[in-house]
């Protein structure tokens, strides 16, 4: 059975008219795993299972209703050989040892906006630290004295300011002396941190990300914020080091930060600061050890909910 690679699905997702086909089948709860397994072969991005839930008085909680039907949904980029794939899915399902016959739903065509818009409704103006104000590009805001406004259209990239890790990095950036600084934003996402650094006085910011969506979003957001000449954006990472930078901010993942610890330390100039986030409590010890192992000094560990950030210095 032909399958789609993850990268191909992502590419299809950024095409000019991104549409997806939702293939959904209703099965008995007991058949959910088998049906999900068959759909997953054709939809390697994953499958969604919607089960009915019921309130259970004894445990005072909602639990999945094992007697009800479950809806298993897979998604294919439109334009792929979807008709042939759907036929093979039906054949595979017919041959599978299901307890009850499956019921296929009509195929739905989805546009990306149909879900991204519903989420946007919940993204509003936020204040971070003393002066930073993050606002979505589609919202009006009346400026107050001293406000530094960052306008963000996150697109499909991470970084709206709403996530605790982004919020901690914004506050930490505000506490740094950024006037005239050379800054690196590693894993720039929407570009929110790179733009904040530029607006806080950095003379040059390099923004790196492996995701082309993020690179595009950062370019667009930097231009919309009038700092395109200060923010250089590149697709890539820090393997081997770079710089030297006065400040590096990296809101990525604990494992990646641990792996890049030596490169990060090597890329900091004398007296330089490193702001890291994107990890949970269980990564703090490992990452602290890795950073200290490179000769950096941990200045503080800060927390916001379950998330942590580590600030270190040369």
């Amino acid at each position: 059975m032909p399958t789609l690679g993850h990268t191909e699905m992502k590419r299809a997702n950024v095409a000019s008219e991104p549409t997806w086909l939702e293939i959904a089948v209703e099965v008995a709860a007991i058949d959910t795993d088998v049906a999900a397994d068959i759909l997953r072969q054709a939809c390697p991005g994953g499958v969604a299972i919607q089960s009915a839930s019921r309130y259970e008085l004894d445990s005072d909680s909602y639990v999945a209703d094992g007697d009800a039907l479950a809806l298993v949904c897979g998604y294919l980029p439109a334009g792929q050989d979807s008709e042939r794939l759907r036929r093979s899915l039906r054949l595979a399902m017919r041959a599978a040892p299901l307890e009850h016959p499956p019921r296929w739903r009509r195929v739905r065509r989805l546009r990306e906006e149909s879900w991204s818009d519903s989420w946007k409704k919940h993204f509003g103006v936020q204040r971070h630290g003393r002066a930073l104000v993050v606002k979505p590009s589609w919202t009006r805001y009346r400026l107050k004295g001293g406000d530094i406004v960052i306008e963000i259209d996150p697109g499909m990239a991470f970084g709206t300011g709403q996530h605790p890790t982004t919020a901690m990095c914004l506050r930490a950036l505000e506490e740094q002396l950024l006037k005239g600084a050379d800054v690196l934003d590693l894993g720039c996402g929407s570009g929110i941190l790179a733009i904040a650094a530029a607006k806080l006085g950095a003379t040059h910011v390099l923004a790196l990300d492996l995701d082309p969506n993020a690179v595009r979003a950062t370019r667009e957001n930097a231009a919309a914020n009038g700092v395109a000449d200060l923010v250089g954006v590149r697709e890539g990472t820090l393997e081997g080091g770079g710089g030297p930078f006065d400040v590096i901010v990296a809101n990525i993942s604990g494992l990646t930060l641990e792996r890049l610890a030596a490169d990060l330390a090597r890329s900091l100039g004398p007296g330089g600061s490193l702001i890291t986030s994107g990890f949970l409590d269980d990564a703090v010890v490992g990452l602290s050890n890795a950073l200290e192992g490179t000769g950096l000094t941990i200045v503080k560990v800060i927390d916001d909910g379950v998330w942590r950030a580590i600030i270190a210095r040369t």
């Binding site: 699905m9 992502k10 997702n13 997806w20 939702e22 939809c43 991005g45 994953g46 499958v47 969604a48 919607q50 949904c73 897979g74 998604y75 989805l110 990306e112 149909s114 879900w115 991204s116 519903s118 989420w119 499909m156």
Partner: peptide, 12 residues
């Protein structure tokens, strides 16, 4: 990623 199945499942 925000692509399906995550996007439609959570976005709705």
């Amino acid at each position: 990623t925000p692509a399906p199945p995550v996007g439609p499942a959570l976005g709705q």
